[in-house]
């Protein structure tokens, strides 16, 4: 069973919208680095060179529209997860990144994010469906994750899901 309460500091970036997978992890490392923990040292470096050294286990990425657009590289959510990121909060996602994240066990949440300030202590309750800043006390709700996504997260991702059930089992 995946954790339902996630806690960590908020990290925001400039640009805030359309953060693409090349920014999350540059294509130039695709062939050079195989180890996700090594790849994690380069996560976000083209738009936030100090992010990889600042991020701590449990931290949460906060963005605007269309997070994860561009390449289908699964290294993008995997490198975020390896860097310690426990969840992403954004107003919307590109569809391949959205699927990839649940497939590798990283919860990504669609909610209003304008009110979240960089560096705030955040709490995400996946079961009750809300996000709260423990710094300011402000909060926002989000719709329940689709059942398919909840099943994948609970099983630890798509490959563990198929191993557990021997096929797709969303009922």
């Amino acid at each position: 069973m995946a954790d339902v309460i996630l806690r960590g500091r908020a990290h925001r970036f400039e640009p805030n919208d359309d953060i693409n997978t090349d920014y999350i992890i540059s294509g130039r490392y695709k062939f050079k680095i195989d180890d996700m923990n090594e790849l994690a040292k380069h996560v976000m470096e083209d738009i936030a060179p100090d992010f990889a050294s600042k991020v701590e286990s449990g931290d949460i990425i906060v963005a605007g529209r269309n997070f994860g657009c561009g390449s289908s590289r699964e290294q993008a959510p995997r490198a975020l997860k390896a860097a310690g990121v426990s969840a992403v909060l954004a107003k919307s996602y590109a569809r391949i990144f959205y699927r990839n994240s649940f497939n590798i066990g990283l919860p990504v949440i669609v909610c209003d994010t304008d009110w979240i300030v960089d560096g705030e202590a955040m709490l995400v309750d996946l079961e009750k469906g809300y996000v709260m800043s423990e710094t300011s006390g402000r909060q926002a709700t989000f719709s329940h994750l689709p059942k398919t996504m909840r099943v994948l997260l609970n099983d630890g991702g798509l490959i563990p899901h198929l191993r557990k059930h021997g096929g797709f089992s969303f009922d």
Binding site: N100, N103, I104, I159, G167, F168
Partner: peptide, 17 residues
């Protein structure tokens, strides 16, 4: 286009959601 896990699932099972 999909990620590697989705394509692996489709190659292995012949199906995908």
């Amino acid at each position: 286009g999909m990620g590697s896990a989705d394509v692996a699932a489709a190659v292995h099972t012949g199906k995908l959601w």
